[in-house]
Simulated scan of single mutants.
Amino acid sequence: MRRLVVVGSVTGAPGVTTTALATAGAWPPEADGGVRPVVVEADVSGGDLMIRFGLPAAPSLLDVAAAAGQPYPGSLLGAVSELPCGVRVVVAVPGRGPCREAVRLLAGEGGRRVLLGDDHDRGTVLLDVGRLSEDVEPLLAAADQMVLVTRGGAEPLTHVSACDLDAHACAVRLTLAVVGPCPYPAAEIAHTLGIQRVLFLPWDAKSVAAMNSAKPGALRTSGLRPAPLVIAARMLARQLAGLQQSGSGTGRMDGDRETEGNGSLLAGRGRTGRVHVPGVEESGT
């Protein structure tokens, strides 16, 4: 069966789709028997990639949802498109209404069977759920791993600390991906939030532009030194593929150097280990 990795955020728009695409693009070729991963847009608010890359309305997430409702669910691969950067995706249509219903079907037993496939299916599905909601809770429970994407300031990290991941049985399978500048060391974030694995993803505008380019293979670097986002995404991909054990699992990737930040994270709040999925009260944060 395929490996299922849920990629999402607690609040805001910290770069979930960019993280999923970069991770898929950096997926190690030796993993999963050489089968490339598939990014599935499963955001109840609607998809972005169809418009961004000028893709047709079909195939899409709606086809996967339709297959999930059949007595014998079809193949996920029948709805796959390939982006110019070489990443395989199942895109979602714009609009909250159809996408929310599609995600609801995807979270059911039939939808999970389509995502995971049969015993002989290999590979990894990176499920881009956008902001976490009650609609995706069954998918969180079924996931092998979860990547929670956040910005590195005190406010977004406080939102992470206010949520309850333990209630969704995914705390031990969680990697916190901190996008952009962050004044706090990874080890302090991990200790304060009770999260074992923290990885920093630099905001690399050139790599993001290349990934969104219509030019085939634009994300690949021709020089000897890969872009910072590519390096960090490669580390995250190897970790998710089970090819890298990095001790405590914490670190910052700036270019190819691991560094530590400065500052004191959420002073006075203590260790909470809480990460709430929707429906959570955030007024006290």
Rank of each mutant, 00 (worst) to 15 (best):
R3T: 13
V5I: 15
V7M: 01
V7Y: 10
G8Y: 03
V10G: 06
T11P: 02
A20E: 01
A24I: 11
E30C: 10
A31K: 03
V35H: 07
R36I: 02
V38H: 07
V39Y: 10
V39I: 12
A42T: 02
V44R: 11
D48N: 14
L49K: 01
M50W: 05
F53T: 04
A57C: 08
P59R: 02
G69P: 03
P71L: 03
Y72W: 12
P73N: 04
P73H: 04
G74V: 01
S75Y: 10
G78P: 02
C85T: 11
C85M: 08
C85K: 03
A92R: 00
P94A: 12
R96V: 12
G97A: 15
P98R: 08
E101W: 07
E101S: 14
V103G: 02
L106F: 12
A107Y: 04
G111Y: 12
R113Q: 12
L115G: 04
L116D: 00
G117Q: 04
D118G: 15
D118E: 15
D119V: 13
D119R: 15
H120Y: 07
D121S: 15
T124R: 09
T124K: 07
V129Q: 06
E134T: 14
L140F: 08
L140K: 02
A141S: 15
A141D: 14
T150E: 06
G152I: 12
G153L: 08
A154V: 12
P156K: 02
T158Y: 06
D164C: 11
D164R: 11
D166S: 15
C170E: 00
R173S: 13
L174F: 12
L174W: 06
L176G: 06
P181M: 07
C182M: 09
Y184S: 04
A190W: 08
P202R: 05
W203E: 08
A205E: 09
A205G: 03
K206I: 03
V208S: 09
M211A: 14
M211N: 00
S213H: 06
S213V: 02
A214H: 15
A214N: 14
K215W: 10
G217L: 11
R220C: 09
G223L: 11
A227I: 01
L229N: 02
V230L: 14
R234D: 07
A237S: 11
T250S: 00
G255C: 11
E258K: 13
E258Q: 15
T259S: 14
E260W: 11
G261F: 07
N262V: 02
N262K: 03
N262P: 02
L265H: 04
R271S: 13
R271V: 12
V275W: 12
H276I: 07
H276K: 01
G279Q: 02
E281I: 13
T285M: 07
